[in-house]
Design a protein around this nucleic acid. Sequence first.
DNA 1: CCCATTTTGCGTCAACATGACATGAAGTCT
DNA 2: AGACTTCATGTCATGTTGACGCAAAATGGG
Lengths: 244, 244
Amino acid sequence: MKYAAVVTQNDDGWTIPLVAIAVDLVILTIRSAALHVLLVERAEMPYEGKPALPGGFLATESEDLDTAAARELTEETGLRAEWLHLEQLRTYGTPNRDPRGRVVSVSYLAIVPDLPEPEAGGDASDANWMPVRQVLRRRAGLAFDHDRILTDGLEHARRKLEHTTLATAFCPPQFTVTELRNVYEIVWGVRLDHRNFYRKVTGTRDFLVPTGTQTKQHGGRPAALFRRGTATALYPPILRGSST
Amino acid sequence: MKYAAVVTQNDDGWTIPLVAIAVDLVILTIRSAALHVLLVERAEMPYEGKPALPGGFLATESEDLDTAAARELTEETGLRAEWLHLEQLRTYGTPNRDPRGRVVSVSYLAIVPDLPEPEAGGDASDANWMPVRQVLRRRAGLAFDHDRILTDGLEHARRKLEHTTLATAFCPPQFTVTELRNVYEIVWGVRLDHRNFYRKVTGTRDFLVPTGTQTKQHGGRPAALFRRGTATALYPPILRGSST
DNA sequence: CCCATTTTGCGTCAACATGACATGAAGTCT
DNA sequence: AGACTTCATGTCATGTTGACGCAAAATGGG
C-alpha cells in the first residue's frame, strides 16, 4: 500500500492525519455443538497465510460503515445482512496495529444460524468455520490484533445473551426450547437446568411464539416449535453463573 | 479544510479512501440535582456559533484513539483522565455527517464528579455545562450528528448503572448512600425507595467500603461516608423500573 | 408386544430477593 | 422542649430462582 498523502490541513493551518478505515467482522455460529467463528486465510502480505477475521477497507469515499460491514458479510458468507443480527462492536486504532500504515478498524459482530457450508468468495483466498476454543487457546493465532477483537466480540455476545433475546439469532426460523438452551450452554460453556430454563423462557412475555407444530421424532417426546417473539430485552435477565 | 489527497492504493491497484478521524466526548456530571453535559460553542465553520460536543481530530499520525480522547478531556475540563471513567462508546461514519468531507468520529463517554467550574481551554471558544433535558428537548440543538451521539451516550450510561458500579464515578472520593441514590434517581429520572436502596447497595459485596467517618450536620442524622469498593459488576443488577 | 431409554413438559418446595412501609436514631431549627 | 429532617434498621407479603421429582410421548431392542 502506498500513500499518496497522509495529511491534510484545516483553515488554521493545522495538520490533520488521514487514515484508512477497515471493517472487521466477528461472525459467530454454532456447528456440531460448538461455537465457531468464520476465519479467512490472508492471501497477501502482511501476515500472508495467517488466519484472520473477514474484513476489508471501505470500498469508496461514500460508503457507509454499516454498509461496508454488510457488504463484507455477504461477500464472505453469501448471506443477506437484512435477515441477520449485525451490530457495531468497537473501534481499534492503535498506531502500529497494521504494519502498512495507520489503519483504524471498526469491528462488527454478526450472529448467524448454522449454515450448510461456508462460501469462499470475495478477496479472501479461503473461508472456514473454526471452533472458537481452539482459536483462542493459542496466543497470536490470528493476524493483526484480531485475537483481541475476537475476545472482545465473544465477551460482548456472552453478555448480550443475559439481557437480550440475541440467542434466537443463532437459531433457525423455527426452533425448540432445547435448541435455544443449547445456545446458552454452548456460548457460556455451562450447564443449565432444562426444567428451569423451560419455565423461564416460556414465561417471558413475547420471547417465544408457539407455532402449534412439533418436531419429528428423534428418540424422545416431540418438542413444540417456536418462532422469535417481538421482545428484544429480557426483564428480568438470565444471569450467567445461575442455573436458570 | 483542504484535502491534499483523499485516496491511496494497495498493491493490487485498488483505491482506498482516506478519511479524517475525530474523537467526540460525551462528558456527563451532576450539578444542582440535574444531569449536565459539557458543550462547547463552535468557533469555526461549519456550524459556527452552534453548541457541540467537545472533540477534535487526531493530533498526529501516531496518536492513539484513547490518548486523543484523554487529551481532549484534559483540554476541556482540566481533569486527568487517569482518575476518571473514560470509555469508548461507538463510531459514527455516515458519509455526509461533516460537510467538510469524510470524517469518521469515535465517540467516548466520560463520567466526572461535580466540578467547581468548567475551564474553557483548548481550541473551544467556550465550554459550559448544560442540562441534558434542556439540550435534548429541542431537536437539532447540537452541531453535526451530536444530538444522536449524546442520546446514545446517555442510554449507554443509563444501562450501565444497572449492572455496574458506574454510578460511583459521579461521586466524589467519599460519599453517602443518599448521594449515590441521587445519582440513580437523576440519571434514570425515577424515585427510588431510600430504605430498599440502602439495603441493596450496602448488601452488595465490595460495592461500598465504610470509611468509619460521618458527614457533618446539615439538618438531619449524620450519614456514614463510603469509598468505592473493588467491585465493577453488580450481581444481581439494580433494574430500572423497579423501586429497589 | 413389552419394557428400557430418551426427551419434553409440568409440578413442588425451600431459599432468596424484592416492593411497600413502619419505626427508631441522631442530628438541626425555632 | 418540641417540631422537623435525614439516616439506619426491621418487618412482612410477594415473586423469582435453584434443585429436583415425575408423568407424557416418542424410539428401539428383544
